[in-house]
Simulated assay, not measured.
Amino acid sequence: MLREGLDRRLHLSSAQDLSVNTPLRTLAMLAALSWAALGAAAQAAPIFVLNSLDASVSVVDPVSWKELRRLPTGKEPHHLYMTPDEKSVIVANALGDSLTFIDPRSAEIQRVVRGIVDPYHLRFSPDMKWFVTAGNRLNHVDIYRWDGKDLQLAARVSTGKTPSHVWIDARSTTAYVSMQDSDELVAIDLATQKLKWRVKTGPMPADIYGTADGRTLLVGLTGSDGVEVFDVSGAEPRSVRRIKTGEGAHAFRGAGDRRHVYLSNRVANTISKIDLQKLEVVASYPAPGGPDCMDVIDGGKLLLVTSRWSRKLTVIDTEARKVVRQVSVGKSPHGVWTLDHAAR
Rank of each mutant, 00 (worst) to 15 (best):
Y144A: 03
R145I: 05
R145A: 10
R145E: 13
W146N: 05
D147W: 01
G148P: 15
D150H: 06
D150L: 05
L151N: 10
L151V: 10
Q152W: 11
A154L: 12
R156D: 05
V157L: 14
S158R: 15
S158A: 13
T159Q: 00
G160R: 05
K161W: 07
T162D: 14
P163A: 07
S164E: 15
H165V: 08
V166P: 15
W167H: 14
W167C: 11
I168R: 08
D169A: 14
A170Y: 03
A170V: 06
R171A: 14
T174V: 09
A175P: 12
Y176H: 11
Y176W: 10
V177A: 04
M179A: 09
M179L: 13
Q180G: 05
Q180K: 12
D183R: 07
A187G: 11
D189G: 02
K194I: 15
K196N: 15
K196I: 12
W197V: 00
R198A: 00
V199T: 15
V199Y: 05
T201Q: 03
T201L: 03
G202T: 07
P203T: 01
P203Y: 01
M204D: 10
M204K: 11
P205A: 11
D207V: 15
D207W: 10
I208R: 00
I208P: 00
T211K: 15
T211I: 14
A212T: 03
D213I: 14
R215L: 14
R215I: 15
L218G: 04
S224Y: 12
D225T: 10
G226T: 02
E228H: 10
V229F: 00
F230I: 02
F230R: 01
D231F: 07
S233N: 01
S233I: 01
A235I: 02
R238L: 12
R238P: 04
S239R: 10
V240G: 03
R241C: 07
R241T: 11
R241N: 11
R241F: 12
K244F: 04
T245V: 08
G246I: 10
G248P: 05
H250E: 10
H250S: 13
F252Y: 07
F252E: 03
G254Y: 00
A255H: 11
R259M: 14
R259A: 13
V261M: 09
Y262F: 08
S264N: 13
S264R: 11
V267T: 12
V267R: 11
V267I: 15
A268Q: 07
A268K: 03
N269H: 04
N269A: 05
T270Q: 07
T270D: 03
I271Q: 08
